[in-house]
Amino acid sequence: MSRLIAMLYDRMMQGTELACLQQWRGALLANCYGRVLEIGAGTGASLPLYPPGIDELLVSEPDPAMRRQLQRRIDSTRVAFATALADYQGERLLVDDESVDCVVSSLVLCSVHNQAGTLTEIFRVLKPGGQLLFLEHVAAQEGTGRHRWQRLVEPLWKRVAGNCHLTRCTEQAIIEAGFELAQVQRESLRKVPPFVRPSIRGLARKPG
């Protein structure tokens, strides 16, 4: 299943990328500076969108099949900064404490095995005042028909979509991890099934 998802992922996401994700990612990544870590980088859709002013980019992807696709994207994408590839799990980032200026999470916090543990690791590696840039699909408002559909579909969806959860309250989890929300925008993803559409994106800072 992992190999199949990796092989088809870019094709499956192409409509959504063109409809909204490329624009949203580009605006979000414009806030990057210094040393940047992207977790769960997938096939590397964000790579061409990073601003040239950053010093270093470390991209991490734990899935071997996705990582092979990501390495090909790194080799074919011309960037003006050093780029390194790692296989870190979100719950165990082998990066020194307070050594990163920005962490990028794009459609990742839905699928990590331990969301709270991943956010704790992100908080640890960020410098004081460092920022988490996030773009995630999330649970619909509780009590709505869409939220009921998400709960119904989620057990099967997790099995076929790489542990992707539909009902995670990611905004609240970011706050509970100790971050201060600097900006957050809620909008529907386009060209995806209705139960995947609710999304948030924005910037959270580690106090410092």
Rank of each mutant, 00 (worst) to 15 (best):
L152S: 03
L152T: 10
L152E: 01
L152D: 00
L152K: 06
V153D: 00
V153I: 15
V153M: 05
V153P: 00
E154T: 03
E154D: 06
P155G: 03
P155H: 08
P155V: 09
P155N: 07
L156Y: 11
L156W: 15
L156M: 11
L156Q: 08
W157R: 00
W157P: 00
W157G: 00
W157I: 04
W157Y: 08
W157L: 01
K158C: 03
K158I: 08
K158Y: 06
R159V: 10
R159M: 08
R159G: 06
R159Y: 11
R159F: 09
V160G: 00
V160S: 07
V160I: 14
V160M: 09
V160C: 03
V160T: 13
V160A: 04
V160H: 04
A161M: 12
A161Q: 07
G162Q: 07
N163F: 12
N163C: 05
N163A: 11
N163D: 14
C164V: 07
C164Y: 04
C164S: 06
C164P: 02
H165W: 11
L166H: 05
L166V: 04
L166R: 03
L166W: 07
T167Q: 01
T167E: 07
R168N: 02
R168L: 03
R168Y: 03
R168S: 02
R168G: 00
C169Q: 12
C169G: 01
C169I: 09
C169Y: 11
T170R: 07
T170A: 04
T170Q: 05
T170I: 13
E171L: 13
E171V: 07
E171N: 01
E171F: 10
E171R: 09
E171P: 01
Q172E: 12
Q172T: 12
A173W: 11
I174L: 06
I174P: 02
I175C: 08
I175P: 02
I175V: 15
E176Y: 11
E176G: 04
E176V: 12
E176F: 08
E176R: 14
E176I: 09
E176N: 14
A177I: 14
A177P: 07
A177N: 11
A177F: 13
G178C: 06
G178D: 09
G178K: 10
G178A: 10
G178V: 13
E180T: 15
E180M: 14
E180Q: 15
E180N: 14
E180D: 15
L181P: 08
A182W: 14
A182E: 14
A182L: 15
Q183M: 14
Q183W: 11
V184P: 03
V184L: 06
V184M: 08
V184S: 10
V184G: 02
Q185M: 12
Q185Y: 10
Q185W: 11
Q185C: 06
Q185A: 08
R186T: 12
R186Y: 11
R186L: 05
R186Q: 13
R186N: 09
R186H: 15
E187Q: 15
E187F: 13
E187G: 02
S188R: 15
S188H: 13
S188V: 05
S188G: 06
S188A: 12
S188E: 09
L189H: 08
